[in-house]
Computed example of a mutant assay.
Amino acid sequence: MARGDKKTKRGKINRGTYGVKRPRIKKKVRAEDKINVDKDPTVKR
């Protein structure tokens, strides 16, 4: 169970890979992107 072990979280971090022990963190969608603030072409100013 060291840095080079392929099946541990520390080994995945060391190798720079992902897997069951180290899942990827998904980016959260911001509320502004969902609403489309200041991007609606129908609004006239």
Rank of each mutant, 00 (worst) to 15 (best):
N14Q: 06
I13L: 15
R22P: 00
D38R: 12
G4N: 11
T17S: 08
T42K: 14
N14A: 14
K34W: 07
P23L: 03
R10M: 07
V20T: 10
Y18S: 13
Y18Q: 11
K27E: 05
I13C: 05
T8C: 06
K44N: 11
V20D: 13
K39S: 13
R45N: 08
T8V: 09
T8R: 07
R15N: 04
P23A: 02
T17I: 15
M1K: 12
V37Y: 12
N14P: 00
K27P: 01
K7I: 00
K12T: 07
K27N: 06
T17E: 12
R45A: 06
D5V: 05
G19A: 00
K27V: 07
V29D: 09
A31F: 10
K34E: 10
K26N: 04
E32G: 09
R30Y: 13
E32I: 13
M1E: 13
K26E: 04
D5T: 11
G16S: 01
K9L: 08
K27F: 02
K21Y: 08
G16V: 03
G19Q: 00
G16M: 01
R22L: 15
K44D: 13
G4W: 10
D38P: 00
K7G: 01
R3N: 09
K44E: 15
I35T: 06
K7Y: 06
G11H: 02
G16I: 02
P23Y: 02
